[in-house]
Design a protein around this nucleic acid. Structure first.
Lengths: 148, 148
DNA sequence: CTGAATTATATCGCATACGATTTAATTTTG
DNA sequence: CAAAATTAAATCGTATGCGATATAATTCAG
């Protein structure tokens, strides 16, 4: 059984369940986010804005661990939905500042239903959830360190 | 600090780091998989085939937790690269059977370098990796149960 | 045994994700 | 202070991921 191909068996991968769970999560969010007319990625952008009011595009990309060429079309979409608006930093015209519109701000209260809806669809104990959270952030932090 | 919006703060989400780590993983695999002319998703398809020799398309989708409309273009791509071939089950012509070509089979040995290359890029202890693995599969299993 | 329901793929459209390249604004340097 | 280097976005091309719909093969029901 312990043949030389053990390391490339799907069941022995750590990365595969990470990938599969991530896809699963997005699927579970969909019906809840449809109520807000948001996709999952659009939702995490909005979460940043509900917290920060204003955010620079580059910082937003770093916060979400996404490249600017992923975020750019997203912002365009959210703008066309009337949830956000863009402006330029007058000190440095290269910097785009994203902020909420009134409509986007209003969505914040409606969004409170989403975490409740998700929690009951993910059956983890508090301990498991906390353990998972810590390990995942450790991985993200390690990665950020390497990026220097 | 404990305002009513705590639950929609990005930092309080469990799903966001899952999503971000999954993207990170795919990025880390890329340079290694470029050597095999495979993307990450194509790689996990090949892993199933290196293990099974032959696999039915529907079963493949279930194994990878992907929908058939994601897997179908992937298989087309792998076929055009000459790594796999498709045939129909003579008992039930609706069933597509995927199998490796000689070229696809040969790639298996080259693929052994990939797990080594990844391991050193993910700094988790054996215990953390095992804990993570178990929690993730618990989530996938729970999800599969609900699907009934 | 034939029309209806079921099942396995295929196709279409939309929304990411990212590497590579380009463009525009700012900073650095000689 | 003007050319070069740097930086922030925008654009392009390729590869997913999935809901919805269509198609083809099989099974089921009367």
């Amino acid at each position: 059984m312990n043949d030389k191909y053990e390391s490339i068996r799907l069941r022995n991968q750590l990365c595969f369940p990470l990938y599969a769970v991530s896809n699963m999560i997005t699927r579970k969010y969909k019906p809840l986010l449809d109520e807000l007319d948001l996709t999952y990625t659009q939702y995490i952008v909005m979460m940043v804005l509900w917290e920060e009011e204003k955010v620079n595009e580059k910082l937003l990309c770093e916060t979400l661990c996404l490249k600017s060429n992923t975020v750019a079309p997203l912002l365009k979409k959210l703008e066309s939905k009337g949830y956000i608006k863009k402006s330029k930093d007058s000190d440095d015209e290269r910097n785009i500042i994203i902020s909420l519109t009134k409509t986007g701000e209003k969505l914040k209260d409606k969004a409170l239903d989403v975490p409740k809806g998700i929690a009951c669809r993910i059956n983890l104990s508090k301990e498991e959830a906390m353990t998972l959270y810590k390990i995942l952030y450790k991985m993200l932090d390690e990665d950020k360190k390497e990026g220097d």
